[in-house]
């Protein structure tokens, strides 16, 4: 029988939020297709999450029992995943820096089709049907993919299972690793300091673009963010100008966020930026240009110079939040 695979990640025994989403999606696809859902847990450290992975939707939790897989190394992971993919009908990876790194190469090695950055995946008439934004979000492509397929799926686009699934089996696979394939070596991982709230978890995000006019604009935004307990984001334009670090970039090629409130300040609203905030509940825009596309995405808009509005907004918010 064919299998659907999900690549999982976990912190100790807890699967990540994204993993729970992918397992939820994988479970629904497997049910619709009458296939089995197998979850890969690369390395014994992730193996601690096997029970939780079964509850989150997998029929089998496959621990790739090789300590050298605990840390991400693409050549070794590709070797292990290719070797253990048994009759894959679909392989689901997260659309993050790991999944996007692996997907094309894994698809090539499995001689399967490839569909990246899916925002909707279903099973229809024996094939995967998936949607993804293209042209920076100006269009949505729907494609049918018959035969084995490797998919990357965007965060916040699938729901975890509402109720834990019972049963399932934990398997330990001894994987043969050949280090001769390694041509890239991790020297150091540098975490950028995020003061305050992580963008991915933020309920409120204050975000700035080229319209801020300079790096000092982000200092103003930080004051606003402090009052709102908000994360700080930036458009690609602001990052390219060196006003904000790359880890602040929000958009199709930056972080995908889903806050309750997104305050876009001096951001024009290019579709590739808006693709990163598609699941934000309420967008508020402050921009001097009344024609800026951001106003066709926002719920509320202010057409003004942010430098003049922000001090009053900070005062008014401080007063309102005190009550």
């Amino acid at each position: 029988m064919e299998n659907i695979y999900v690549l999982t990640d976990a912190v100790e025994s807890r699967p990540t939020r994204n993993t729970l989403e992918l397992l939820g999606l994988g479970h629904r696809l497997a049910q619709a297709a009458g296939l089995k859902l197998r979850a890969w847990l690369p390395g014994p450290a992730r193996g601690q999450a096997a029970t939780a992975v079964l509850a989150a939707g997998a029929d089998e939790a496959v621990i790739l029992d090789e300590p050298r897989l605990d840390t991400y190394q693409p050549e070794l992971w590709l070797q292990a995943l290719t070797a253990t993919a048994s009759a894959p009908a679909a392989v689901i990876l997260p659309a993050d820096s790991t999944g996007r790194d692996l997907a094309p190469r894994l698809a090539y090695r499995l001689q399967s089709q490839l569909f990246t950055d899916a925002v909707e995946v279903s099973w229809s008439d024996g094939a995967v049907v998936a949607k993804r934004p293209v042209y920076g979000g100006k269009a949505i492509m729907t494609a049918r993919v018959a035969g084995p397929v490797v998919l990357t799926v965007r965060a916040h686009t699938a729901s975890p299972l509402a109720e834990p699934k019972t049963g399932g089996e934990i398997l330990r696979e001894a994987v043969q690793i050949d280090e001769a394939v390694v041509h890239t070596r991790l020297v150091e991982h540098v975490e950028e300091k995020t003061e305050g709230v992580r963008l991915e978890d933020a309920r409120v995000i204050v975000s700035g673009g080229r319209g801020l006019g300079g790096a000092e604009g982000f200092a103003e935004l930080q004051k606003l963010a402090a009052i709102l307990h908000a994360g700080i984001g930036a458009s690609r334009g602001a990052v390219d100008l060196g006003w904000a670090p790359p880890s602040w970039q929000i958009g199709q090629t930056g972080k995908i966020v889903s806050p309750d409130l997104y305050l876009a300040i001096g951001i024009s609203g290019a579709s590739q930026h808006m693709a990163g905030v598609a699941s934000a509940k309420t967008i508020v825009a402050i921009n001097t240009d009344p024609e800026a596309p951001i106003f066709s995405y926002a719920r509320l808009g202010v057409v003004a110079d942010y430098k003049k509005v922000l001090p009053h907004l900070i005062t008014a918010l401080a007063a309102a939040l005190k009550q």
């Binding site: 293209v134 269009a139 949505i140 492509m141 494609a143 049918r144 066709s296 995405y297």
Partner: peptide, 22 residues
């Protein structure tokens, strides 16, 4: 051996209502 994707549709995303200007 891998065939190209079979594109079923290419459409604009659903329109959103314009912002209420404060």
């Amino acid at each position: 051996k891998i065939p190209p994707l079979e594109i079923l549709a290419l459409e604009k995303p659903p329109a959103v209502a314009a912002a209420e200007i404060v």
